[in-house]
Simulated scan of single mutants.
Amino acid sequence: MSRVMGVAPSLGTDERPPRRRALAPLEPVSTRTRLVLGVAFFVLFFGLWAVFTLGGFVSPTFLASPITMAKEGWLLFTEFGFLHDIGMTVWRVVGGFVLAAIVAVPLGIAMGAHKGVEAFLEPFVSFCRYLPASAFIPLLILWAGLGEMQKLLVIFIGSVFQIILMVAVIVGNARKDLVEAAYTLGATHRGIVRRVLIPGAAPDIAETLRLVLGWAWTYVIVAELIGSSSGIGHMITDSQALLNTGQIIFGIIVIGLIGLVSDAFFKFVNRRLFAWSALR
Rank of each mutant, 00 (worst) to 15 (best):
P25S: 15
P28K: 02
P28A: 00
S30T: 11
T31K: 05
R32K: 09
V36L: 10
V36R: 07
L37N: 14
L37F: 03
F41N: 11
L44T: 10
F45W: 13
F45E: 08
F46C: 10
G47E: 02
W49L: 05
A50L: 01
T53F: 08
L54N: 04
L54Q: 09
L54Y: 08
G55F: 02
G56N: 00
S59Y: 02
A64E: 09
S65T: 03
S65K: 04
S65F: 05
S65M: 06
M69R: 11
A70V: 02
K71R: 15
E72W: 06
G73D: 13
W74G: 15
W74K: 14
L75K: 12
L75N: 13
L76D: 05
F77H: 04
T78P: 08
E79M: 13
E79H: 09
G81C: 05
F82C: 00
D85F: 01
D85N: 07
I86C: 06
G87M: 03
M88L: 11
M88I: 11
M88G: 01
T89D: 03
T89W: 05
T89I: 05
V90T: 00
W91V: 07
W91Y: 03
V94Y: 00
G95W: 04
F97C: 03
V98G: 01
L99P: 07
L99V: 10
A101H: 04
V103K: 01
A104P: 10
A104Q: 07
V105T: 01
V105P: 00
L107Q: 04
G108L: 07
G108V: 10
I109K: 02
I109C: 03
I109V: 09
H114L: 12
K115A: 15
V117Y: 15
L121D: 01
E122N: 14
P123F: 05
F124G: 10
F124Y: 12
F124M: 14
S126T: 13
F127P: 11
C128H: 10
C128V: 13
R129K: 14
R129E: 11
Y130S: 14
L131C: 06
P132Q: 13
P132V: 10
A135S: 10
A135C: 07
A135H: 05
F136E: 03
P138R: 15
L139H: 01
L140C: 14
L140Y: 07
I141L: 15
I141P: 05
I141N: 15
L142T: 14
L142M: 15
W143I: 10
A144P: 15
G145T: 09
G145H: 09
L146M: 14
L146H: 10
L146T: 12
G147M: 12
G147K: 13
E148N: 14
M149L: 12
Q150V: 07
K151G: 01
L152S: 06
L153Y: 05
V154H: 03
V154F: 08
F156W: 08
F156N: 03
F156S: 00
G158H: 11
S159R: 03
V160A: 01
F161D: 02
Q162E: 08
I163F: 08
M166Y: 06
V167D: 02
V167P: 00
A168P: 07
A168L: 08
